[in-house]
Lab assay of single mutants.
Amino acid sequence: MKVIFLKDVKGKGKKGEIKNVADGYARNFLFKQGLAIEATPANLKALE
């Protein structure tokens, strides 16, 4: 799953980066902790 990092995550990505991560890791950790959001077209446009 492609995500946009909202904060730096050690070993995974830095704020503003778009990367592929495992679906479960994204849903169960990154999204719940507020560290990333899904890289949807609307979210990508908002990032610009």
Rank of each mutant, 00 (worst) to 15 (best):
V21Y: 06
K12H: 15
T40N: 09
L30R: 00
L47F: 14
A22N: 15
K12M: 15
G24K: 11
L44H: 04
N20W: 15
L30E: 01
E17Y: 03
L47G: 05
Q33W: 15
I4S: 01
A42L: 08
N43V: 08
K7F: 14
L6I: 12
G13R: 02
I37N: 03
G11H: 07
G34S: 08
A42T: 11
A22E: 10
Y25F: 11
G13Q: 02
N28K: 14
A36Q: 00
G11S: 06
Q33G: 08
L6R: 02
M1A: 06
F29Y: 14
I37T: 06
A39G: 05
G16M: 06
K12E: 12
E17S: 08
A46K: 12
I18V: 11
I18R: 02
I18G: 01
D8H: 09
V9P: 01
R27I: 14
G24P: 13
K2W: 15
K12P: 01
F29W: 10
L47M: 13
G16Y: 08
I18W: 02
G11Q: 05
A42F: 07
V9Q: 01
E38H: 07
L6E: 02
F29A: 06
D23P: 15
G24L: 13
K19S: 10
G13V: 06
V3K: 00
A46G: 10
A46F: 11
D8G: 07
L6Q: 03
I18Y: 03
G24E: 15
L44M: 10
L44N: 03
N43A: 10
N20D: 13
A36P: 00
R27L: 15
E48R: 06
F29M: 08
L47N: 08
K12S: 13
Y25G: 07
V3Y: 00
K14R: 12
Q33F: 15
K12F: 14
G34R: 07
A39I: 03
Q33N: 15
L30P: 01
A22I: 09
G13N: 03
D23Q: 13
K45Y: 09
A36T: 01
D8P: 05
G16I: 00
V9R: 02
F29N: 07
V9F: 05
T40F: 03
T40A: 03
Q33D: 06
K10V: 14
K14N: 10
I4P: 00
M1F: 09
F29R: 07
